[in-house]
Write a protein that binds this DNA or RNA. Structure first.
Length: 499
RNA sequence: CGGGGAGUAGCGCAGCUUGGUAGCGCGCCUGCUUCGGGAGCAGGAGGUCGCAGGUUCAAAUCCUGUCUCUCCGACCA
């Protein structure tokens, strides 16, 4: 995707298109990246902070995050998890205890070396994730099999010094939740890992209207220190993949490193089996990139801070009457829905239409003298642009039904998009014909050399080895060879460019 | 971290080549008229030219450094 030079904009200016183009965002099809950065700023989702890679999450975006939080929190609680909070700073000696783990994170850890005006005896790491400090504490808390399982989640911020950052998708500091559990048996820990992946899948599908491919990460893409990493890969509007949540089976790697031992029923001292799982504010980026369009954001009703906006068409003498009517509507709908009445005097209805569309409000009610006279309101859907008259009688029910329909329609559209850009391939070069846009399902021999070749030649990675029930466009073809080296293949894999 | 592009009013930009009083559009403020897809007229406010050094009588403009954004790669949620 290339940027447009001065000549391009000069031409647009002369043609008179520039006025509109300046107010709108860059069309999505024209330059997806530019579109994305335009949208996150113009919809007041974020602003850049003074330090590289840090952003301010503005109230509108934070509200969406809160909906994600409460959804996940409910799911976690329903499966017996509790929230707790562990410290931000981790002593160097703790962070370095699990060999693979340190190696994976060392390059992106920020260190605190001074405090109270003095050099610290031991540098403190700003947590990039909390397995280590959690492990240290769990070792103290766990003595007996009767103490298991430990099912704790924490909502926190973490810092990873990234080289290239993008709003929400990859910021130096980000908000997330990280669950950390300890189990008596391997089977139980594995079940936990899968259960939490399902929780994320539920959030994505039911609340965020985002379909995803569930799978296992290849060894090269695995979380540092994990035995197995499960992932949900969603497809963005431009066909690239986004890892939206991960769930790790950590085996006994951390319990051995941190001495998380328990005396089992049989009198033997055993190491616990641990898991960790997380989802971050990156999901906000995914939400934007999956559903957004040329007019801006499109929010699924379940996470829309404002589900319904009422725009009065209040002109001349009828002004007060219309506003009064709108206030009444607001009263009527507010108990059931998140409704906002746009009473701003300084903007015309047309301006407000565009403004709320940019912010992704799912439904707009237009109320003018004509509607009042006919006992109706005009209802405009953000997802389809469709505008219809709806009877004032039973409006709350009608509106609720339309919101449900929008929620479903957004999921259906996203699913259709993912399916349309999912291809079965025999050889990785076939991706070129599709401009490398989409999920390419092919066989893989399991050799990292093939993954490297894919990376070098195509800038694509192995997103995951899909779980058995996933929507493979061609289903498993036994006996096929690796899409890269054409030796006998052991796995089915999804290849894609990723964020 | 490598390679491109860019930082001038809230937003989008011109001015820089050839140093000499900082501009335009939108937005903002006030007033009036408006209001069914980004309203009109009149008046007005707003800028340490990212930051720090240097050259010069004089720097937005030339030189050096630095910070930040952005795109394409490499590394990760």
């Amino acid at each position: 995707m290339k940027r447009f030079g001065k000549r391009f904009w000069l031409r647009r200016r002369r043609s008179g298109l520039v006025e509109k183009a300046l107010k709108e965002v860059t069309p999505r099809s024209e330059d997806f990246s530019k579109w994305y950065t335009d949208v996150v700023r113009k919809a007041d989702l974020m602003d850049y902070a003074p330090v590289k890679g840090f952003i301010v999450i503005r109230p509108y975006a934070y509200r969406i995050w809160e909906f994600i939080q409460s959804d996940l929190d409910a799911r976690f609680r329903a499966t017996g998890h509790q929230n707790a909070y562990f410290p931000l700073l981790i002593p160097e000696s703790l962070l370095t205890r699990e060999a693979e783990h340190v190696q994976g994170f060392s390059a992106e850890v920020a260190w605190v070396t001074r405090g109270g005006g003095e050099e610290l005896a031991e540098p403190l790491a700003v947590r990039p994730t909390s397995e280590t400090i959690v492990g240290e504490m769990y070792a103290r808390w766990i003595q007996s099999y009767r103490d298991l399982p430990v099912l704790i989640n924490q909502w926190s911020n973490v810092v990873r010094w990234e080289k290239a950052t993008r709003p929400f998708l990859r910021t130096t500091e980000f908000l997330w939740q990280e669950g950390h559990t300890v189990h008596r048996t391997q089977a139980e820990a594995r079940a936990e890992t899968e259960q939490q992946l399902e929780a994320y899948r539920g959030l994505l599908k039911e609340t965020l209207a985002i379909p995803a491919v569930a799978g296992v990460k290849s060894a090269g893409e695995r979380f540092a220190g994990a035995v197995e990493t499960y992932t949900l890969e969603a497809m963005m509007g431009d066909g690239r993949a986004l890892q939206t949540a991960t769930s790790h089976f950590l085996g006994q790697n951390f319990s051995r490193a941190f001495n998380i031992q328990f005396l089992d029923e049989d009198g033997e001292l055993k190491y616990g089996w641990t898991t960790s799982w997380g989802a971050s504010t990156r999901m906000l980026g995914g939400l934007i990139m999956v559903h957004g369009d040329n007019r801006g954001l499109r929010l699924p009703p379940r996470v829309a801070p404002i589900q319904v906006v009422i725009v009065p068409i209040a002109k001349g003498r009828e002004r007060e009457a219309v506003l009064a009517h709108c206030r009444q509507l607001l009263q009527q709908l507010s108990p059931h829905l998140r409704v906002h009445l746009d009473q701003r005097d300084e903007f015309t209805p047309g301006y407000k239409f565009n403004d709320w569309e940019m912010r992704g409000v799912p439904l707009r009610l237009e109320v003018g003298p004509r509607d009042i006279a006919q006992s109706q309101v005009m209802v405009a859907r953000r997802d389809s642009g469709e505008k219809v008259a709806v009877k004032a009688d039973g409006l709350a029910a009608s509106v609720a039904a339309i919101l449900e329909a929008i929620q479903d329609a957004l999921y259906a559209q996203a699913l259709e998009h993912m399916q349309a850009l999912s291809f079965a391939i025999d050889d990785y070069h076939e991706a070129v014909a599709k401009d490398r846009r989409g999920f390419f399902w092919g066989n893989w021999c399991g050799d990292e050399a093939c993954a490297d070749r894919l990376q070098e030649e195509m800038s694509m990675t192995i997103r995951c080895l899909p779980l058995p029930n996933q929507p493979d466009p061609q289903h498993l073809r036994s006996g096929a060879d690796c899409a890269v080296c054409h030796r006998p293949a052991e796995h089915r894999a999804v290849f894609a460019r990723a964020y």
